[in-house]
């Protein structure tokens, strides 16, 4: 009995996760026949039963949002996809063990940069996630990662930049030259998990000094 190799139907089944939005993605055959359909199942590691993800049964797109189903940060998860092509050939592939806490990427913070005459203030907006506490309260990254820090950076010129690391979300760079352009960045860092967001960047100009005019 020769079993046909159908591995070409399905590749790279994995979670793509940012701030705990957990999207399952996969690739199909390069010249994937339009009539190939995909069905998604998921489970908590240690559980016996695979559960079907409603809304991702016999779909033709190559992604499925499993954020709600994988929202318990103390759990580990698996997902798997079954592909069936027009000729009835099928293939099933599983993800690696997925840990939301370890595997999620951190999005850049949302920041307001406020220029003044001789300073620039940077205010990071609360980094809310899709995760909710038992009481329904929406959690921020700070609630989830106790060691979260913000890295504030301001480039003064080609050779000199100022850099500060803070737990607080607000920081002000003082002693700046009025009416001058500066490039600021803010990153989120989680040292214990070696996580770092991409930087939020702002180009901002200090106000002119009108005191003597």
């Amino acid at each position: 009995h020769i079993t046909e190799d159908t591995s070409d139907l399905l590749q790279h089944v994995k979670f793509q996760s940012s701030n705990f939005e957990n999207i399952l993605t996969w690739d199909g055959k390069l010249e994937s026949a339009p009539d190939t359909v995909y069905s998604v199942q998921y489970k908590t590691y240690g559980e016996g039963e695979w559960l079907e993800k409603e809304g991702c049964q016999r779909i033709t797109r190559k992604s499925c949002n499993l954020t709600v189903e994988t929202s318990n940060l103390t759990e580990l998860y698996y997902a798997r996809v079954t592909a069936i092509d027009g000729a009835g050939r099928s293939a099933t592939k599983m993800t690696n063990r997925f840990s939301p806490l370890q595997d999620t990427n951190i999005k850049p913070p949302d920041v307001t940069c406020i220029p003044k005459v001789r300073s620039i203030q940077m205010n990071v907006h609360p980094p809310y996630t899709v995760i909710r506490a038992r009481n329904g309260h929406q959690l921020t990254l700070e609630n989830i990662f106790q060691d979260l820090r913000y890295h504030f950076n301001l480039r003064i010129n080609h050779t000199y930049q100022m850099h500060f690391e803070r737990k607080q979300r607000k920081f002000e760079f003082f002693g700046l030259t009025p009416d001058t352009e500066f490039h600021g960045t803010v990153m989120i860092c989680i040292p214990n998990l070696f996580k770092e967001s991409a930087p939020y960047e702002c180009q901002v100009k200090t106000l002119p000094d009108r005191t003597w005019t």
Binding site: Y45, G46, G48, L76, Y78, M94, N96, R97, Q102, F194
Partner: peptide, 18 residues
Amino acid sequence: FWAMKDIVQAQDNITSVR
């Protein structure tokens, strides 16, 4: 652990036991 996590966990295909 992270340096080897995927290699090691990929060898464990008993997903129903923790």
